[in-house]
Every structure is written in structure tokens, then in C-alpha cells.
Simulated assay, not measured.
Amino acid sequence: MENRKKIGLFFGSFNPVHIGHLILGNYILENSDMEQLWFVVSPQNPFKDKKSLLKDHNRLDMVQLAIKNYPKMRASNVEFSLPVPSYTIDTLTYLNEKFPDFSFSLIMGEDNLGSLHKWKNYELLIEKYQIIIYPRISDEDKKDPVSESFRLAILQHENIHQINAPIIELSATEIRNMIKEGKNVRPMLPPEVFDYLDGSSFYK
């Protein structure tokens, strides 16, 4: 079991993928025993409105462009063929069956912890998989006593690992709004992604 290839799964809409995603992904690869990091492009998040999402294949294209110079990173479209809405535990079960020689870990922001108890089969998720938590400034959950007590309790679990990654509070929503308003977003995006969007009408 120890010889299984270690893969970190970074789920997201990546709408669009930005430099914050790459900085975080690279930090995790350089400061853990992960051998690869997969950006799993989600077709639909059960907690998000789908209307603002760019088409699945466009978001996948952008991730592929963004990571082309990072040999340990992959873009995954695994959820495109799974039932929608996609639930993390179902995707992990599918990946485990498809890649029995791989050991998968989940990468998530600290801001997700307080609401993890709302996820499908969250107990199974925590028992079966390592979860790597990166810091986020957002403290919405901390205002809710139930979410906060759950967050503090779950941090004690042996499969939950906090990492001291740099906090990059770049928002894809803000980037989309800036594009819509004709503002310059070049510093926030990998150059290939900027060029891809600049030559299109996406988000405008």
C-alpha cells in the first residue's frame, strides 16, 4: 500500500483558473510527499449557481494551458462523465476503482471545513482519505457556533493535515467581474489563460 503513487486532488470550478491556484498547487507539491496534483474541473458544484459557469471544456482547456509547464500537475475531466451534480465522495470512489495503484488525497480550503458536515457521506470521506487543509482568510463559518465547533473538532482528526501555504485571496468571481468591466486582469492569470480569454468574448 505504501508503494501506491500519491495523488493530490484539487477540486474546483476553475472559472477561470488563476495564479493563486498554481501558487497553491506548486506549494503543496514542493512541501509534501505528493507525486502529482490533479486539478479536477467540476461540471457543477451542488452549492453553486451554474449560470455563471463557462462551458466545461473551456474551463478544462484553460487549466491545461495553465499547467503545461508544470510536469507534476494534471487537468482532470473525470467528473464530466459522472452524474451531475458531482459529489466528492462519488468521484473518489470512482477514481479508486479506476486507479487501484494510486493513493488519493483531497485538498481543500480551511473555509470549507465548517460546512463539511453538509457534504455527502462526509464521515466516510474523512475516514478513508487524507485531507490537506490550506489556510483561507474567510471567517464566515467562525460566526456560526455549530460550524465553528465542528471545524475545531474535525481539525483533531488524524486524516486532517493543515499546511502553512501562502494565502492568495484571489477570487475568480472578482476576475470575471473585472473582465466584464473591461479592466486589466493580466497579472492575475497565467499568461496562456490571459491570452485565451483575451481572444474570446468569455465573461464579457
Rank of each mutant, 00 (worst) to 15 (best):
F104T: 06
I160C: 03
E127K: 13
D101A: 12
S201V: 00
L170E: 15
E192G: 06
N58G: 00
R4S: 14
M1I: 13
S103V: 03
I67P: 09
M178A: 15
S138N: 14
I167G: 15
K5L: 11
H21G: 12
N31A: 00
P166N: 15
N121C: 11
L116D: 06
T93A: 13
R176K: 15
S86N: 12
N121E: 12
S171H: 09
S105P: 06
A172H: 14
I168C: 15
I89R: 10
N45M: 04
N96Y: 04
R4M: 14
P190W: 04
Q36N: 11
I163A: 01
H161W: 07
N58S: 07
A165Y: 02
D33R: 09
E110S: 10
N77K: 13
Y129Q: 10
L65H: 02
G109V: 06
E148H: 13
I67C: 03
G25M: 08
I167C: 15
V185A: 13
Y203V: 07
E174W: 14
P46Q: 09
N121Q: 12
L106M: 04
L22A: 13
E140A: 13
E30N: 02
N164E: 05
H157L: 12
R176A: 08
T91Q: 09
Q162P: 00
Q156N: 15
N31H: 05
Y134E: 06
S81K: 12
Y87A: 04
K6T: 05
N177K: 15
K143D: 11
K5I: 06
V40I: 13
Y122A: 07
K68S: 02
E158I: 14
I28S: 06
M108P: 00
V193S: 13
K55C: 07
H57P: 05
P43N: 07
S103N: 12
P100S: 10
L170M: 15
